[in-house]
Design a binder for these strands. Structure first.
Lengths: 214, 214
DNA sequence: TAGATTGTTAATCGATTAACAATC
DNA sequence: TAGATTGTTAATCGATTAACAATC
């Protein structure tokens, strides 16, 4: 079914957006769509949509277009949303708590198993019915509880150390909110959320466009 | 000083990373660096670094390299980090609170003026010494208080409505955390933080690499 | 001066768009 | 069947990398 060529990052980063727009079509009871129609909604060219989807299979039908539900399901599978991931969060500060409470999380198959922090004021509190553990227990916890995904929400100074412990215990993917680049072996996936970079980009664009003059 | 050609988004999104690595060099008391050395640290090619920096001016010196402090300051200016932005947050849930408490925020020149929510349980509480106002007051607040940046942290159903109010009152930039694409006039800048897209990308890459097998 | 390293042009690579034959 | 729309190849566009003359 899936083609064997390497998919570019540009294509991969568009997949969630397809998934989101298809979900929206479903809620609007639209059960079929052409690349041209989808193009008008999503803002990619029809050509690009067909090109993108063809990386993964022949989901369309000439003269008809795409079946919305089928395509939605297929993209969900491609994204791995049918899988379950044992997940932990390290760092229970603002961002850690927000991520822990982030409801979409469980829906995507990420099951939060444990939360760690080193601040004694946070250790022991409950977030989503999960008691925050002392980060000193991280090593032994991971040794006993095989975990797929680690979410790093600690200050940048501690991010690499936390990542090292995670990697040592076989964590396969890291969602990194610390504003630093962590080093991991090639077979570990890191996805960064660098909020300050996003904010700086906004700041740049405001000034570039000369919309902002004090 | 600055060249007049249009800067590509690819270059813009690398600027914050230059800024971050230069800050790190400064804390390590390194006061000069060549594109080659920086390349080894930051992971871009030396050629790309020179190409990128030359979009904005001649910051280097042949035979010497770049002065770290000067370059850091220049990039800060290019990013508009020397400016101040009056900022509000709409939506005081998990993400709204995390953003409000996000300390880097003020350092980058984003000054939080007000927070709004429609949940009566949140209205009246204090976050960072700012009392959460009822979202019904948003319109009149903006009419009386010129604001540069709006941060949207409401559920996707309400994001467009909030954006419309912001735009009506002349907000210039929107930092959007709602998992939807909002429509604004061309002269308003939108920077999206789509957490679930980031998570889906992580999920895809885990499965693609076959690191993850249940 | 000689060595180092930039700024910049040219070459390459990759991603997007256009075109159209295949086919439902 | 005729019309619509895909899948796919070819053309274009843009971004990255390589090369090197300029120069500190």
């Amino acid at each position: 079914m899936a083609k064997e060529t390497k998919i570019s990052m540009a294509v991969i980063r568009r997949l969630p957006k397809y998934h989101r727009y298809l979900a929206e079509l479903l809620t609007n009871d639209i059960d079929r769509i052409s690349s041209k129609e989808l193009s008008e909604r999503i803002g990619f060219t029809a050509s690009q949509i067909r090109q993108d989807l063809n990386c993964f299979g022949d989901f369309g039908q000439q003269g008809y277009g795409y079946n919305v539900r089928d395509l939605y399901n297929e993209i969900g599978k491609i994204l791995g949303l049918d899988k379950n991931y044992k997940t932990i969060i390290v760092g229970a500060g603002n961002i850690g708590q927000a991520v822990a409470n982030y409801s979409k999380f469980e829906k995507l198959g990420f099951h939060l198993q444990a939360i760690f922090d080193k601040n004694p004021k946070l250790v022991g509190i409950r977030i989503r019915d999960i008691e925050v553990k002392d980060v000193d227990c991280l090593n032994s916890y991971l040794a006993q509880n095989p975990t797929d995904i680690g979410i790093i929400c600690v200050p940048k100074e501690h991010a690499q150390m936390v990542a090292d412990i995670m990697v040592k215990h076989g964590i396969k993917g890291i969602w990194n909110f610390a504003p630093t680049d962590i080093k991991v072996p090639d077979d570990v996936i890191v996805e960064n959320v660098h909020l300050s970079e996003s904010l700086m980009t906004l700041s740049y664009r405001l000034n570039e466009s000369n919309l902002f003059n004090e």
